[in-house]
Amino acid sequence: MKIQKEIIEFEDGKSFKLFSPSLKNCFFWHHHPEIELVYVEAINGIRHVGRDISVFTESDLVLIGSNVPHLNFDYGIQTECRQLVVQMRENFLQNTILPVPEFENIKKLLERSYLGLSFSGETKSIVIEKLNNIKDKNSFDSLIGLIEILQILAGSDEVKELNKEDTRIKWFMNDKIRMGTIYDYIHENYDKKPNVNEIAKIVSLSTPAFCRYFKKQTNMTFTDFVNNYRISQAKIFLLKDYSVTEVCFQVGFESLSYFNKLFKQHTGETPSEFRKKHLKNIEVRN
Rank of each mutant, 00 (worst) to 15 (best):
V251G: 06
I282R: 10
L23G: 03
Y242W: 14
I147G: 02
L115K: 09
S15G: 07
K176S: 13
Q78M: 01
E161F: 06
L153E: 06
M220R: 14
N163T: 08
G13A: 05
Y183C: 04
G145Q: 09
I199S: 07
E129I: 00
G13M: 03
L262I: 15
N286S: 13
P33Y: 05
H266Q: 05
K235Q: 10
L84E: 12
D74G: 11
E90N: 12
T270H: 03
P69L: 11
I53D: 01
D60V: 11
V85P: 07
I169T: 06
R212I: 06
E129P: 07
W171D: 13
L93V: 04
F28D: 15
K2L: 13
T96D: 08
M220F: 05
E148L: 11
N195P: 09
N132G: 15
G121N: 06
F10Y: 15
D175E: 12
K164Y: 11
Q4S: 14
V38E: 15
E90I: 09
L162F: 02
C81P: 00
C248K: 04
N189K: 11
A200G: 12
F210E: 09
E9V: 11
K124P: 03
E122A: 11
K124M: 10
F28A: 14
L143A: 02
D12N: 10
D74H: 05
E6A: 15
A154P: 05
K261F: 10
L37Y: 04
V196P: 02
T223G: 10
R178H: 02
K264R: 12
V38P: 11
E148W: 03
M173S: 09
L153W: 02
Q233K: 14
I46K: 08
V127C: 06
N25A: 09
F27I: 08
L110S: 08
R285K: 12
S206F: 00
C81T: 13
S206G: 12
Q151W: 02
V226Y: 02
K24L: 00
G252I: 08
P194N: 12
F259M: 08
K235Y: 01
Q94L: 03
F225T: 07
Q83S: 15
N133R: 08
L153R: 02
I231R: 00
I186F: 04
Q265Y: 01
E41I: 08
T123I: 09
L18W: 08
N227T: 07
E158S: 07
L109G: 04
G268T: 03
G268M: 02
I282T: 09
E41V: 07
Y185R: 08
H30P: 13
Y185A: 10
G180C: 05
L84G: 05
R285N: 11
V284S: 09
A42F: 01
F19H: 14
V55H: 00
H32D: 13
I134K: 02
A234L: 04
E102A: 13
